[in-house]
């Protein structure tokens, strides 16, 4: 389960992915050179807050961004295939065939006028052909696989007739219907209740191992990443600022932003103390500072940080960080990071 830092060529390779939104007045740099790779059977969590570019990354991979208003540059290769060059038929086969996506809000991702079964059968027949009856049998099998009770009956239910948890399971079944090699999950458990969220996370973990899919899992919640990820990539202002095995990153973050995010997540803090927070707010993506994007909010900032984007360094095997002061962050115990006095 740990790392997956060896064996075989990567399933997905993203190199220098850049996305700009072009509006009437402003150009917004949503992604500024994102690079990562993912092996089959591995879960990589893109972790970040709103505006960090984590969802844009997923949408760029799926070519879901509005073409007229976005400029996408860089390289995306899935098992050697150039994804950004796909058009028309090939793109359709890619979406839902090689790659499937699970959204945060299954209610808006499922068409309310079709039953769960119609969704599944259509997807199965579109990508694999076969008779309607065979597709239906397979659909029921999929619903059982995602542990929907009474699957043979629920297959004829409309999305609104299912509870939130069941809808998300149906969405996962739909994503798995064509045995994708890569699963993209955009905050799939954020809208769920706590007791349901853990069920869906455990289910996703199990299915991902069974199918051997590579999974790109977007979340803003460190705790979700801790439950599901093999590796995490922490994003800030359109860049990956830190990447590494999940346990190592959460135990000893190398980037001040990761450290501050950990400290400010409400989790067993003493009720009589303020929670350490990150001063300021995320930068305006239309006017990023020339240096490290986190510099204006960073407690460890030095003059050098403001000159240019910090280069990627590797503090440990399998770990990457873009911070000039990562050595100082790593040398500081988490407890004192949390109080903010680690200057």
């Amino acid at each position: 389960m740990d790392g997956g830092q060896d064996r075989g060529p990567p399933l997905l390779e993203v190199a220098d992915l850049t996305v700009r939104f072009v509006g009437h007045e402003a150009r917004v740099q949503a992604l500024a050179g994102v690079s990562f790779s993912l092996r089959a059977g591995e879960v990589l969590c893109l972790l970040g807050e709103s505006g960090s570019g984590k969802s844009v990354t997923l949408r760029a991979l799926m070519q879901l961004l509005p073409p007229g208003r976005t400029e996408v540059a860089g390289q995306v290769r899935l098992a050697g295939q150039d994804v950004l060059a796909l058009r028309g038929r090939a793109l359709q086969a890619f979406r839902g065939g090689s790659v499937a996506m699970v959204f945060q809000e299954p209610m808006s991702a499922l068409d309310p006028v079709y039953t769960i079964g119609q969704h599944l059968i259509e997807a199965i027949r579109q990508h694999r052909g076969g008779s309607r009856a065979a597709a239906r049998a397979r659909a029921i099998g999929l619903l059982e696989l995602v542990k929907i009770p009474a699957a043979a009956r629920r297959i004829d239910a409309y999305p609104h007739e299912l509870s939130g948890g069941l809808r998300q399971r149906a969405m996962i079944a739909l994503a798995l219907s064509c045995t994708p090699r890569l699963l993209l999950a955009d905050e799939p458990t954020t809208a769920l209740d706590a007791t349901v969220q853990i069920q869906v996370l455990i289910l996703l973990r199990r299915l991902q191992q069974e199918f051997g899919m590579g999974t790109l899992f977007v979340t803003h919640d460190l705790a979700v990443a801790a439950e599901i990820a093999d590796r995490v990539a922490v994003m800030y202002a359109g860049r990956i600022v830190e990447e590494g095995p999940v346990a190592a990153v959460l135990r000893a973050p190398a980037h001040p932003y990761t450290a501050a995010l950990l400290a400010s997540t409400v989790h067993d803090q003493a009720p009589d103390q303020d929670i350490p927070t990150i001063p300021g707010s995320p930068p305006d993506l239309g006017a990023l500072p020339p240096g490290c994007s986190f510099a204006p909010r960073c407690a460890l900032v030095r003059d050098a940080c403001r000159i240019g984007p910090p280069p990627a360094t590797h503090p440990a095997p399998g770990r990457m960080v873009r911070c000039l002061r990562s050595a100082d962050v790593l040398a500081t115990p988490l407890a004192s990071l949390a109080t903010g006095d680690y200057r």
Binding site: P149, A194, T195, I198, Q199, L201, A226, E227, A247, T265
Partner: peptide, 26 residues
């Protein structure tokens, strides 16, 4: 069950079995 459903923040101590099955009934 609610308390047990909280996520751990520790990748080495993951929840293996969900404390509750199913959704809250309507």
């Amino acid at each position: 069950a609610l308390l047990a459903s909280r996520l751990s923040m520790d990748a080495d101590r993951r929840t293996l079995e969900p404390p509750l099955q199913g959704d809250p009934p309507s």
